[in-house]
């Protein structure tokens, strides 16, 4: 059994695994945030494990289980999907337990410490857009969740790998050959999945909050040039709440935070097939105009 710690501000995870690809991928994707020298003085927020299921099945159709503090939120998956399961498990862990932030399912990228949220359901092209921007002058704060400090319009980083699926995998490998990628988790419920390491610069600034200045709801459409629709505050509020992980759990504080945030930011829904056009729009119309 191997044990390692991931120091990913604002959280520290300790992971136990007997599946070699889990530790190998974590080591290559997290770099200096990964440590297999367990420091007993470090405060660990969550104890996780990704291990082979027991029994005879292990020898002919091996499966992996994810546990968070002895709780098992998912059914076992194929063992070759164990690393992706760990990443999804970390997402679940934070979304299900953390109440000190208003948490929105959203990518977060910033320029000059001005951040834009990209809340979107699966299939919207969010992660491909995130990968592109993070390699083209934008600071990655998160591919998956915005941790908003209640009562403010500040978002704090939670820097993790970017989860790419299906046709995005080949594109990302072609665009960014120098980047570090995980092994492929084939045939998951999301299709083939791979994780791409966050840029080193993102880790270097992983304690620096950014001010949210825009919220953009992305929709990738293969045959559609950039179409931009300005949303009113009521529309944007309802979409943001739909993408919130803990809005109802936090209650009044979350309502106040989100309504206040909506009034301080710009809101757009975009349809696109050209990532460079999107980059230009975001920079000129949101970042530079804020």
């Amino acid at each position: 059994m191997q044990t390692f710690q991931l120091s990913l501000p604002p959280f520290t995870f300790q992971v136990e695994t007997n599946i070699s690809l889990v530790a190998r991928n974590a080591n290559s994707l997290y770099g200096s945030a990964y440590s297999d020298e367990i420091d007993p003085l470090v405060y660990v927020d969550y104890y996780l494990s990704a291990t082979y299921s027991g029994g005879i099945r292990r020898f002919y159709k091996p499966q992996a289980r994810f546990l968070c503090d002895e709780r098992e939120p998912f059914k076992p998956l194929k063992a070759n999907q164990a690393y992706a399961m760990l990443e999804w498990g970390m997402n679940w862990t934070v979304a299900a337990h953390e109440l000190q932030y208003a948490i929105v399912h959203s990518a977060v990228l910033a320029k000059d410490d001005k951040a834009i949220l990209f809340p979107a359901p699966p299939g919207s092209g969010k992660s491909t857009l995130t990968a592109h921007l993070s390699q083209n002058g934008w600071r990655l704060l998160s591919d998956e969740m915005a941790l908003i400090i209640p009562g403010t319009n500040q978002v704090i980083p939670f820097v993790r790998p970017i989860c790419l699926k299906n046709s995005s995998i080949a594109l990302a490998k072609q665009w960014f050959p120098e980047c570090v990628f995980s092994t492929v988790a084939a045939d998951t419920h999301k299709g083939d999945v791979i994780h791409m390491a966050a840029p080193k610069a993102a880790f270097e600034q992983n304690r620096t909050a950014a001010t949210i200045v825009g919220i953009v709801y992305p929709n990738y459409k293969v045959d559609r040039k950039l179409d931009i629709y300005q949303l009113n505050m009521t529309e944007s509020f309802m979409q943001l709440v739909d993408n919130s992980f803990n809005f109802t759990a936090i209650g009044e504080s979350s309502f106040d935070t989100i309504t206040s945030l909506i009034e301080k930011t710009k809101h757009f829904e975009i349809f696109y097939n050209d990532l460079n056009e999107v980059d230009l729009f975001l920079t000129e119309d949101i970042i530079n105009a804020s």
Binding site: N232, M233, T234, F237, G251, E252, F255, T259, E263
Partner: peptide, 15 residues
């Protein structure tokens, strides 16, 4: 009940 009328007068939200 919580309610908030938005500054842009686009509507009210309730929780």
């Amino acid at each position: 009940m919580l309610k908030h009328p938005f500054l842009d007068k686009s509507g009210l939200v309730f929780f």
